[in-house]
Amino acid sequence: MTTTPRIDSLAQYHLLGRSGLRVSPLCLGTMTFGTEWGWGSPKETAHRILARYLEAGGNFLDTADGYTGGTSEQLIGEYFAQHGGRDGVVIATKFTINTSPGDPNAGGNGRKNIYRALEGSLRRLKTDYVDLYWLHAWDGLTPVEEVMHTLTGLVREGKIRYIGLSDVPAWYFARAQTLAEREGLERIAALQLEYSLVERNIEREHIPAALALGAAITPWSPLASGLLSGKYTREGVGVKGDGRLPSISTSGNPGFLKLFTERNWGIVDALKDVARQLDRPPAQVALAWVTRRPGVASTIIGATRLEQLEANLRALDVEIPAPLAERLEAASRPELVHPYHFFEEAFFTGGMFTGGTTVRSEPTWFRPSPGRR
């Protein structure tokens, strides 16, 4: 492969929450490694994408035991077995998803499944430790005490280095982190959650909780499954264009169905207008917006082609001037619902709590202004 330059901004590492782990501001998501799901990259392409990301200065890889039936982890393991350099990267993988129908203990967040899942991941990744181990999703069943004690035990055994939670309620994270602080367990370093211009609901509870309790935010789907890439057009409120979004939009998955609304198409229109003014692709502007949000340490990007990866990495160089950032803010601001309307700045400046005096320190749960870190 022809040598291409390092991207300096990709190598300006961030600490992952209140830990000492240093990660790139863009994380390479590898859910597209493998073709078992009917889309994605074969081994040769996946390895080229991984090689370019590392060459550019990236060090943070995200996968899961359930991605492409385990092929994603396997391809990562094969790459480092062939090329070396495993200790120079941060490999994150996940457990929770049941890949053995009929076996109730081959999924979820109980101790039995965590050990089963980790052993399989270590085998496929061809390594004896995972840098960051994510709980993939709240299962609604397993006591948080069992989860935290199990993960802490694995850290102490040296099989994992740090722990994180993905797709959990904010109260669950807060309870887990408080339990860790009270009982001397391993603290949660990060939360992996969906976050984009069209999905900002985590700003209500998750981001304030993360800022208060010392965890980083690692957004997934920052391009809203491609809706914010700029390559699709609307058909009614649906979508058309070349790519996987039109096909998966008919899958019945509520995560995809929620994308196609009048509000979201309005956000796409605003994004395209801002991108034209900046002379940048919409995808780069959308990614640049996410990477600069409060609490965000590393944003997960995916790619099925090398050119796509290269373009996405350049998002770190995009600066969004304040007037254009405000345009995106206005178009995408989440609906104000109960009880958050009580916490608006105007309510406080009206003197309801302060008696008309000035209080300079904002509560941590104030809505962040555009671009503030």
Rank of each mutant, 00 (worst) to 15 (best):
V359D: 07
I248W: 00
G350R: 09
S196P: 05
G17I: 01
D65F: 01
L125G: 06
G140I: 09
G57Y: 01
L21G: 02
F343K: 02
E119T: 15
G241E: 01
L61W: 00
F260V: 06
R123G: 14
W138L: 02
K231L: 10
V318L: 01
I301T: 00
I188A: 06
E186N: 08
R327Q: 15
N312E: 12
V290Q: 02
P42H: 12
T45Q: 13
P222N: 14
I217N: 07
M1I: 07
A64L: 08
L227W: 10
P246M: 06
M352C: 09
G184S: 14
A303K: 03
T35F: 00
I188C: 06
L75N: 03
F60V: 03
G236T: 01
A180G: 15
S24E: 02
A303P: 04
R182P: 00
P25K: 04
T32C: 05
P321V: 11
M1V: 10
E55K: 06
L75M: 15
L16M: 04
N59G: 12
L75F: 12
R292K: 15
D65H: 13
G40N: 09
F80I: 05
R276W: 00
T127R: 10
V198R: 04
P104M: 13
R333M: 04
K159H: 09
G295C: 05
D139G: 13
G69K: 07
P370R: 11
V337D: 09
E362P: 11
S121D: 04
R372K: 15
L15W: 00
L245R: 03
G77Y: 12
G371W: 05
P222K: 10
D8V: 04
L197T: 07
A346P: 00
L15T: 10
R305Y: 04
L287E: 06
T93Y: 06
D167A: 10
Y53L: 04
P323S: 12
G34T: 03
T354P: 10
S249C: 11
